[in-house]
Each structure stands twice: as structure tokens, then as C-alpha cells.
């Protein structure tokens, strides 16, 4: 399966670069309305066709990728940081702190996650940060639970006992000894979760709760063109393909990372 992993990384790099360098690739403005070229089907000039306001879908998909991918990444890093902090504290100190924190984590996990994200994005004014907050609010809990479990098993190992016996403070043990040992696991989990965050982001913007128009995201391109599905199906096909392809690459890479870690775990420090 190594070839597949390479293909996934390759496609992902192409998608990310294409979004970053969107202005160099396409000459069309993603938000400029051009009423002379409404709902043109895909051709050599408009690669993915145009929508009901004459905007070029190809450039909208490219620019949309900027928002969709960066939101997924930022939310993943926020979730990871919060989850790491909470999981380390809860796992290391145990007892009452652990009990209270884990009760809260279970509470968050017991909510239907998309509905929780919808609820949070309704409260705050819509924009990039609201979406990030909504995804993070749902996402940190599973990181916290994973890290806590890992810390519980690390804590019993001789090197932690050794650190304690030479008089290391709690903070030093957590930051210098536990944290580095949690990082490989966290990054694997991050890889497995990124695809899900991208799907949540696109679902929120599909429901009109994400980044607001006219700026495109992959979800909002689909949602805005929903009503034209019978007369201009290409308007929703390509944005959806972009989501599927990106999420698939994230998932394949995440799986590969996980398999690698399983394979390598006897030898490494964990």
C-alpha cells in the first residue's frame, strides 16, 4: 500500500499548493459577478463551468480550499493543544481532578457532535473564528480522553518514578517527561481527525453557519448552488469532489501514520 500513501501525499500537496497559489493559477476573481457568463457548462475557458452569477467555479474551488483547509488545520491544532493540556493534567494528577475533568469530557462526547457545533456557531457572530471555536469545542474532548489514557499508563513506568525520586517537580515531569512521550500518539490522532474536521467545517458552511458569502468555501459553494442542481449540476460536483479527495488523502495518511506507529512502538521510547 506504500504507493497509495505516496499518491495521497502527492494529491494533498497539489491541492494545498493550488489553494495557496490560487491567484497565479486562475485569472478569474472568485467573487466577481459576471452576468454575461451565467451557468456556462465546463469548457476550456471555464474549467469547472460558472455558477448562476457567472463566477468561475474553478477559481471559487481553489479559493474555497484556502478557508476549508486552513480552518480544519487551525481547529485541529487548537483541539490538540487543549486536549493535551487537559489530558496531561487529568491523567497525571488523577483522583478528584481526573474525575471532574472526565465527567465534563464525557458530557461533551455524549452530545450529538454536529448539533453541538451548530449550537456554538449560532451563538457567536459568523466568521472564520466561530467555525474554529465550534469545531474545537467538539474536538478537544476525544484528544483529552486519548492523552489521559496514555498518561495513565506512562505514569507507572520506571522513568517517571526515577524522575520523581531525583526530585523533579510535577511541572517538570509533565512538560519534560510526559509531554514528549505523548506527542507521537497525538500527531497520529491528529492525522486521523483532520478529515473529520474538514467534513464538519464543510457541513457547517453548507448549513450557512460558516464563513459568510461572498467568500467561497467548499461547503458554501455546494449550498448556494443547491437550487440550480437540475440546470447546472457542475456547480456542485467539483466542490464536492474537492472535499472527498482532500478528506480521503487525510484519512489515508492518517491510517498510514497509525500503522507506522503500531509497527514502530516496541523500539521507540513510548
Amino acid at each position: 500500500m506504500k504507493a497509495l500513501n505516496k499518491i495521497a501525499i502527492g494529491i494533498l500537496v497539489v491541492i494545498v499548493l493550488a489553494s495557496v497559489f490560487a491567484p497565479l493559477i486562475t485569472k478569474y476573481d472568485p467573487v466577481k459577478i459576471d452576468l454575461d457568463s451565467i451557468k456556462i457548462s465546463p469548457n476550456s475557458k471555464h474549467l469547472f463551468g460558472t455558477d448562476n452569477k457567472g463566477r468561475d467555479i474553478f477559481s471559487r474551488v481553489l479559493y474555497g480550499g484556502r478557508f476549508s483547509i486552513s480552518i480544519a488545520f487551525i481547529a485541529a491544532i487548537f483541539s490538540l493543544s487543549i486536549g493535551l493540556a487537559v489530558g496531561l493534567l487529568s491523567g497525571y494528577y488523577g483522583k478528584k481532578i481526573d474525575m471532574v475533568i472526565m465527567m465534563f469530557v464525557d458530557l461533551v462526547l455524549s452530545f450529538p457532535s454536529l448539533l453541538l457545533a451548530i449550537g456554538i456557531s449560532v451563538i457567536f457572530p459568523s466568521g472564520i473564528f466561530t467555525v474554529v471555536i465550534a469545531i474545537t469545542a467538539v474536538g478537544w474532548a476525544s484528544f483529552a480522553r486519548l492523552i489521559r489514557g496514555h498518561v495513565l499508563s506512562l505514569k507507572e513506568q520506571p522513568f517517571i518514578e526515577a524522575a520523581r525520586s531525583i526530585g523533579c517537580s510535577d511541572i517538570r515531569i509533565i512538560l519534560v517527561h510526559l509531554l514528549p512521550n505523548c506527542l507521537p500518539l497525538s500527531f497520529v490522532f491528529l492525522g486521523l481527525k483532520l478529515g473529520g474536521y474538514l467534513l464538519t467545517e464543510s457541513a457547517l458552511s453548507f448549513l450557512g453557519l460558516g464563513v459568510q458569502p461572498p467568500m467561497p468555501t467548499w461547503g458554501s459553494i455546494i449550498s448556494l448552488n443547491r437550487i440550480y442542481i437540475s440546470s447546472a449540476p457542475w456547480t456542485i460536483v467539483f466542490a464536492g469532489l474537492a472535499i472527498v479527495l482532500t478528506v480521503m488523502c487525510f484519512n489515508i495518511i492518517g491510517d498510514a501514520l497509525r500503522d507506522r506507529l503500531d509497527y514502530a512502538s516496541p523500539g521507540c521510547r513510548v
Binding site: L199, A203, F206, G219, I222, R226, I236, G240, I243, M248
Partner: peptide, 9 residues
């Protein structure tokens, strides 16, 4: 990896 709203449409 499928967004359900897209495959549904």
C-alpha cells in the same frame, strides 16, 4: 470521506 450533503445531492 464523503460529505453526506454532497453525495445526497
Amino acid at each position: 470521506s464523503l460529505p453526506v450533503f454532497w453525495i445526497g445531492l
